[in-house]
Design a protein around this nucleic acid. Structure first.
Lengths: 199, 199
DNA sequence: TTGGACATGTAACGGGTTACATGATTGA
DNA sequence: TCAATCATGTAACCCGTTACATGTCCAA
């Protein structure tokens, strides 16, 4: 992935400044769930890309304010094209909520009331993202390519799936309708005995 | 998130060595999609956690081989408990395939045949993960808590959703049944004109 | 006139990986 | 006997963020 290709990609949409790229990534990034990038990465990276002739720079007046605007060179377009053709990395997911759930054990480790709170917060966040997505879909100012629209559909399906899972999970937690713990080698049994013995 | 709590969490299942923790994370991590951890993080972190008295260490003979096995102290269990109660971070997703799709534009940027190949590879990977998941669900050796089983259900739903999306997307790409590009400000139009003009 | 968005940048730090180094045990 | 797996560790490096520094323009 790397910052480099995000920068080249965004600049492929329109000539942009460091500041503008950050704004675009934050906005577009919400639907596509790519998080944000800090200025501490953007500006040095733009400088480097310019030195390597992937992009070039010119001064522009954007509503009265001077900005450094970057555009792709031939080499930049080629690099982007070549990156697209490379096999993408396996996706990386870090979901702290589900990580915590891996260790949680009702009645032994973690308070179920806390988990319910975590899930409610996640529900709210996902709900808002879905609203944002819907608003985006129907506005008539945002640009999106044919292929990018296919990718956006993923986000939509994902959010819906997530909300259904949250609802179902909350229901099961509240009604104490939990799956049965599988512990064929009595590891957990031993573990919580160990826990109780610690001073 | 951080390595720290993964280590404490895994050790909460059973006393383990650095090597064993890596194995467990790689295996369990597949269903829960937490990727892997390198020895370069595990060993120094275990040392640090021992110095801070979250874990303690003893020598053990595991099938004839001497290993350093770590277990949680009272302080370690408390730290784990307290971490579980904290509001989890927003999940982080880096999906290079969908990132690439954001910039792709049929006939202008990126070769659709390459995209089809990327999607087929992803389909294969997701399919295998789903098989792995099913095998895991039905085996009678793996341990899982009640709450962790709820989290696993997420993985299952996610993989199924992903496979359906891939199928649908492949079909649309092959039948050239693409969504219409939205470009109200003619940005893309200009962009690809710029591209054509670069020497 | 002042706070907030616009705009660009650097230096220190952090949390991880990669690559390297080492050695024991086991099964083909 | 030799490759693979088990097992532990360190040092260099990379890629990013955080915090800091600086200045402009506009609207309330």
């Amino acid at each position: 992935m790397s910052i480099k290709h995000i920068l080249l990609g965004v600049i492929s949409w329109y000539p942009a400044s460091g500041y503008g790229i950050k704004k675009e990534v934050e906005y577009k990034g919400r639907e596509q769930s790519w998080g944000s990038i800090s200025y501490g990465s953007i500006y040095p990276q733009l400088k480097k890309l310019e030195e390597e002739h992937f992009i070039y720079c010119y001064e522009a007046q954007e509503h009265g304010r001077a900005t450094k605007v970057y555009d792709l060179t031939k080499k930049g377009w080629d690099e982007l094209e070549s990156w697209l053709s490379e096999t993408p990395q396996q996706p990386i997911v870090r979901d702290e909520l589900r990580m915590k759930m891996s260790f949680w054990k009702a009645g032994h480790l973690g308070d179920v009331q806390h988990l319910i709170r975590h899930l409610e917060q996640r529900k709210e966040a996902s709900h808002q993202m879905l609203e944002h997505y819907k608003g985006w879909e129907n506005n008539d100012i945002s640009m999106i390519t044919d292929i990018a629209a296919l990718s956006m559909e993923y986000t939509n399906l994902h959010l819906k799936m997530e909300l259904e899972w949250i609802e179902k999970t909350l229901r099961r937690l509240r009604e104490q309708d939990l799956p049965t713990t599988k512990d064929p080698n009595h590891l957990l049994e031993k573990a919580y005995k160990r826990k109780a013995q610690q001073i």
